[in-house]
Each structure stands twice: as structure tokens, then as C-alpha cells.
Design a binder for these strands. Structure first.
Lengths: 143, 143
DNA sequence: TGTATTTAGGATAAAATTGTCCTTATTTAA
DNA sequence: TTAAATAAGGACAATTTTATCCTAAATACA
């Protein structure tokens, strides 16, 4: 469904959201540990998320990452499209370049319904609520 | 969403379904052409689908592939799981090994809803209806 | 029987994704 | 001012996925 990079990215963002409303910045090392992700690879992803304007990074001791916006204003769709692009939102289920209502692939109509639901869900799900569930112990980032 | 292999496999199955209720067997060469797929790679996928019991293959001149069952009894879920396994049906959206109602990842509940809809759609969509749309010119396998 | 045609399958290659390593730049604080 | 800590980013490596090539096996038909 999502790439590994995207999975790591989402987990990182949720962890940062949950952690940084307590303290300030969160370090790469801590993020990678708590999300059970490879450190160096996670670094690349956080870099990308910073470039895309979803994170703010600071170097040096006490440096780290913080959300660029309030977690209530950040949703999963923004994260996914920052990392995986918009393929998941608009791409054809059978990989055709041209696939729309004018010239649909055989599964287009049925696929579009599900895909649009996924898009809706990703757009409606905020980092705030995900971080809250995590903080409450209702959900987990590892295992 | 689906792997390339799976996309090719689905397109091939739809083409075979549409073509073989007219004639009998359909050759690899024809399938690859009409689905705009690489021949040798498609061969591997058709091999796998044959091993999985979804296709019957015949060697020699006039040989080729036919559906193992009536297209009304074959659905997309069977094809997807033959090629990509059941990851798409049961896998965690964030890649956790353990992720269920007992110990959910942060997106589990919302993700499961969409994933279950996808599963339902794949189970309910038969090769018969897809092949019919294609034959009627309402849908396409290329471009 | 022999030849052409077609799928099976092993070996290999290319490309994309995932992952690591190392150096540089920046910042903090002693 | 220096040392330590941290992210940035380039180079490279490993793995997975996608794709190709070649030979073998099976089959139809002359």
C-alpha cells in the first residue's frame, strides 16, 4: 500500500507530534528508536519532510525535529503525498497511464470508489488524533 | 497498491476471460501484446497463475492459456492473492508485524475500514463482468 | 518421424527501493 | 575558542522487484 519510506515517515510524524507537545524538539536517534526504524534511512525521510515544509529541523546540541504546523492542521494525506507523491490518490489500479471516466480501465469505476474513500480517510485523519491515541496507550508504534 | 506483476496478471486474466469465451486458448504472445505487458515477465506470471490453479496451460502449436473456471466464478481477490499474497488483505498500514484490535497501530481502525472495503470489492468483482465491459468497449486494457 | 510452435523454468540482468557509511555544516555550551 | 552534538547530504551497498534470455519439454501436424 504505502512504501517503507512512507510507513517510517508516518510513524515518525506521529511520534514527533506526540512527543513535541510535551518537550520541544525530538532527535533523529530517539525517533528511529521509538518507531523501530533504521536510523540512517529515517534521516533521509525526515530530511525530505523538512524540505517539503512538514517539519522544521535544527542542528547542533539540543537540535532535532518539530512539526512545522499544529498537529490538528496536519493530516496523513499531506505526509503520504510528501513522500510517495500523489500516485496513491490518482493512479490507475492496473497501472495504465490514461485511466479516467472517459477511458477507464476495466476496474476503474469500482477501484475509484475505494481509492476515494482512502483519500478521504487520509485527508480527515489528523496527526493530533493519532498522537492522542498513542499517548493514551490505545495504540502503538512498534511490534 | 498492487505490484506490477499483479497488474499484469489481472489484465491478462481479463483479456483471457474476454477472448476465450469466443475461441479456445489464448497464446502468451497475444496476451502480452493486447495488455501492453513485457512478454517474458508475463510468461512468469501466467506460469504462477497456472500453478495456483487459476489458469490451464497447454504447450505446442495451438497451445495457450484458458481460465481454469468459469469467469463468473473467478474474482479479483483470487488473482491478487495468487500473485501478491494476502498482505493487501491483512497487512498493517504502517508495516507492523503485530497490528490488530488488541494491539493496534495508530491508524489501524481507520485503515481497516478502507482495507475491508477494498477486500470486499475485490471479492465481489468477477472476471465475467470485467470481461463484458471490455468486450462492449466500455473499458480498455491499454494506454 | 521430424519440424515448427508453444509453454516451463533456470540463469542472469536491470532498475527501483531500502539501507548504510562517512564527511560536512551548524549549533550549543563549556 | 574549542569540543561535542546534531542534522544535511553525497556515495555506496544490499535487497527486492521487474525484466530478459536461453534451453528444455511438450504438442500438433505435415
Amino acid at each position: 500500500m504505502f512504501s517503507k519510506a512512507c510507513e517510517y515517515g508516518i510513524k515518525a510524524m506521529i511520534y514527533i507530534a506526540q512527543k513535541s507537545d510535551e518537550d520541544g524538539k525530538v532527535s533523529l536517534k530517539e525517533i528511529a528508536e521509538k518507531t523501530d526504524s533504521p536510523v540512517a534511512f529515517t534521516a533521509k525521510i525526515l530530511q525530505a519532510l523538512s524540505r517539503e515544509g512538514l517539519l522544521i529541523s535544527t542542528k547542533g546540541p539540543t537540535g532535532g525535529f518539530v512539526l512545522a504546523k499544529s498537529p490538528s492542521n496536519m493530516n496523513l494525506a499531506q505526509i503520504v503525498s510528501a513522500i510517495d507523491g500523489d500516485k496513491v490518490f490518482v493512479g490507475c489500479g492496473l497501472g495504465l497511464e490514461t485511466c479516467d471516466n472517459e477511458r477507464p480501465c476495466p476496474v476503474h469505476h469500482k477501484f475509484a470508489i475505494v481509492r476515494d474513500e482512502l483519500t478521504l480517510m487520509l485527508n480527515l485523519t489528523t496527526l493530533q488524533e493519532l498522537a492522542l491515541g498513542l499517548k493514551n496507550g490505545d495504540s502503538f508504534l512498534t511490534r
